[in-house]
Simulated scan of single mutants.
Amino acid sequence: MIWTAKLIKHKNENRIAVQFEKNYRLIQRIKEFEDARWSAQKMVWHLPDTFENREHFNIIQYENTIPSPEGIEQLHKFKQHLASKRYSDNTIKTYCEALRSFLFFYREKPIQDLTNQDVIIYTNEYLLKNNLSASYQNQIINAVKLYFSIIRETKIDIEKIHRPKRAKVLPNVLSKEEVKLILEAHSNIKHKMMLCLIYSCGLRCGELLALKPLNIDSKRNVILLKNAKGKKDRIVPLSPKILDMLRDYYILYKPKTFLFEGQIIGNQYDARSLQLILKQAISKVKIQKPVTLHWLRHSYATHLLESGTDLRYIQELLGHNSSKTTEIYTHVSTKSIQQIKSPFDDL
């Protein structure tokens, strides 16, 4: 696969431009990335500027972003500490790259001399100046607070490091009719099975792909999710309709290690291929919304709430630590809103 990638500004957004010779297979692959777009003006495909995309295309933000020797040593120690605490690989990578950015910014200053004012300066002179998101800023703050609480003793008072104001973004939810169209779009039983299982159990993409046949308890009609997000096990109810579909699927595919395997027997199904399956489904049924796999999970929770399921049970089913996380679905449920009569109707 021959391609080149570089950082660009497009409509005042930080993006990654990817160029390659015109090739149907490569075009299909690039479309698997979330928010991949074609620019007719620049004649390139471009993607969001994220750590994951930079890493995938070997753009080392780190071009010119290597911290001082002291910073490199501290990053190594920080990574070792996180690993010893059994943080997930993704969390370790996210925290280390966030801290790397901060330490690079102060590569000329000894770490022990850093203060809270330096954190504010970094926020204003780097994060805000480069239009980086509040969620990315929050990642930086998480990494900095954790690092200075466990690795170094400095002039920084971690309790006084403030976080960005959170945007109140509502989850995206599909109607039951839209969900049905999407789930019935594929005739391939494997593709249909994966999408149906995500919606019917409110699974995250990673949770679905980590499932093994032994996680399906047909006697109790539940699915056991092992070591899910936050290293927590939980169980979710298994619909009798889904169980019948699973039996047909199992007879046809006979999975060995994972419930859904890729082309190589015993290997997990690829997450990007699953995203492409969803994109193909929404294209077939002509839904114009930018639906992602997580929309199916959001829709599951909202539809449960609208059918009268107690919020505490929904919290358990989704694996949320805090009820506040689950309460956001009360803001997108239309059950009560639809009963409100507009004063316009009385005019």
Rank of each mutant, 00 (worst) to 15 (best):
R29A: 13
W3I: 10
L99S: 00
E73L: 11
L304P: 04
K231W: 07
F104G: 03
C196Q: 07
Q339A: 09
K212T: 14
D270Q: 06
D118W: 12
L304C: 09
E261C: 13
H294N: 03
E184G: 10
I314E: 07
T326N: 04
Q139A: 07
N188V: 08
K6Y: 14
D49C: 13
T91W: 10
R247Y: 15
I223G: 00
Y329E: 01
C201G: 03
H331P: 04
L238Y: 10
E73C: 04
W38Y: 12
D35T: 05
L214M: 07
N221V: 00
R163Y: 12
S239D: 09
E125D: 12
L7V: 15
D89W: 03
M193N: 08
I314F: 09
I30H: 10
Y122L: 06
R163M: 03
F260P: 00
E21Q: 13
E261L: 08
T94P: 04
H294G: 11
I223P: 04
I182Y: 03
P67F: 11
K160W: 08
S187D: 15
S200D: 01
I2N: 15
L82Y: 08
L181W: 07
E13V: 10
N14C: 09
N267K: 11
T302Y: 08
H81P: 00
L195H: 09
S323M: 07
Y250I: 08
L317W: 11
D270A: 07
E261I: 03
Y87E: 01
H46K: 06
T115A: 07
K226Q: 15
K232F: 05
N90M: 04
L197G: 00
A301T: 05
A134G: 06
V332C: 04
V169H: 06
L347Q: 11
A134K: 14
P213I: 02
W295T: 02
A83H: 15
H303W: 01
I92Q: 09
L47R: 00
I72M: 14
K145A: 02
L296P: 06
K79P: 08
E108I: 10
N172Q: 03
D89S: 01
Q315W: 02
R29S: 13
M43N: 14
E55S: 14
G319Y: 15
N221H: 09
I141H: 02
A143D: 04
S323F: 05
E327V: 04
A210E: 13
V144W: 08
R247D: 12
R204F: 09
I66Q: 06
L128K: 10
S336Y: 14
S84L: 15
S239K: 10
K286V: 10
C205K: 12
A143Y: 13
S283K: 14
F148I: 03
I287V: 12
I277H: 02
D233W: 06
N267W: 12
C201W: 03
E306I: 10
M245C: 02
A17S: 11
